[in-house]
């Protein structure tokens, strides 16, 4: 029996000269036999988590354990062994090799692992039979429908019977008839001894899941009493890449808003004093924080939910704030 344990995972990369953290302090546990759904909008880090689980992307911080394997610590032969035998990936848009037949596509991971030709062929045929494509062995991807290609991709992911199967947007390029077959197949894969993790923005998949992880929480519409918050000099109000919840109004003190550059330095975006508000765009649109806010001296802030903030300043001021931020 295996399970997946993700602890305090942070993944960052450089983009446009700045540090981007699509995943910030993520914790997740998925038990054997479960199907976990990573739900979120584009850019929310779903695929990034899958890449890290597939040991293709190395996180900046945190740990990923799949069974007794510390994925984040894998190097060299152990990394190749993990990719070959412990994890199978169903890529977005299928990503089949166009020059190969369905059977050969399924065989590629087996060839990479130097499985004897006859054995690899037999295994590929078994898997294609299992996904209902026993009569399409010699067809190239171009001769298959989207749903059939996706099933070939699933068969390829199962080549080594891995305990962890990852699927990236498995329904993105399928019509509703094809979606049905693929969903059924993914659900069947989540059986004791195997975990399936699906990244999607398609909420139709929700009933499929044993566990759902929202990577980009929707902008909250709730109203709750304003929070009065106090910060010491240098203390963080929020960090770049973190999820957003509150909009802040400065009662006292000064707040600096900085953006972390890829080279480790910081760019000062704004210095706000009493009466000003900041951090409004993230919570309003359900985005992660695009900058870090820090108290310059002793600061007193009031935190509002986006709904309360909108009521406080009016929609005209919000539109003005958006224009100011984008200019």
């Amino acid at each position: 029996m295996i399970d997946v344990n993700i602890r305090d995972l942070t993944i960052e990369y450089a983009s446009g000269g700045y540090v981007v953290r699509p995943i910030h302090h993520l914790d997740l546990r998925v038990a054997s036999g479960e199907l976990a759904l990573l739900l979120g909008a584009s850019g929310s880090g779903k695929t990034t988590v899958l890449s890290a689980l597939a040991a293709i992307l190395r996180p900046a911080a945190g740990t990923i354990r799949v069974g007794d394997v510390d994925v984040t610590g894998l190097r060299g032969a152990a990394l190749t062994e993990y990719r070959r035998h412990r994890v199978g990936v169903v890529f977005q848009a299928f990503n089949l090799v166009p020059s190969l037949t369905a059977r050969d596509n399924v065989q590629t991971p087996l060839w990479a692992a130097r499985m004897p030709t006859r054995q690899a062929r037999q295994r590929a045929e078994e898997l294609l039979d299992r996904v209902g494509l026993g009569d399409r062995l010699a067809h190239r991807p171009g001769d298959l429908s989207g749903g059939q290609q996706q099933r070939v991709a699933i068969a390829r992911a199962l080549a080594h019977d891995p305990p962890l199967v990852l699927a990236d947007e498995p329904t993105a390029h399928l019509d509703y008839i094809q979606v049905e077959g693929v969903l059924r197949l993914l659900r069947e894969l989540a059986e004791p001894g195997r975990i399936v993790v699906v990244a999607t923005h398609d909420e139709r998949l929700l009933p499929l899941a044993d566990r759902i992880v929202h990577l980009s929480p929707a902008a909250t519409a709730e109203s709750r009493p304003p929070q009065r918050l106090q910060y010491q000099p240098g203390q963080l109000v929020f960090e770049q890449g973190a999820h957003s919840d509150l909009v802040y109004v400065i009662e006292d003190g000064q707040i600096e808003v900085v953006r972390q550059r890829a080279d480790g330095t910081e760019e000062l975006l704004a210095l706000h004093g009493p009466g000003r508000y900041f951090g409004e765009l993230g919570p309003l649109f359900g985005l992660q924080r695009s900058a870090t806010a820090r108290a310059v001296d002793h600061a007193v802030l009031t935190g509002y939910t986006p709904r309360d903030f909108q009521e406080l300043v009016g929609s005209g001021r919000i539109a003005e704030a958006i224009k100011r931020a984008s200019s």
Partner: peptide
């Protein structure tokens, strides 16, 4: 294609 092959364990 190379990326997919690498991701599936090709050296």
């Amino acid at each position: 294609e190379f990326a997919v092959l690498k991701a599936t364990g090709a050296s």
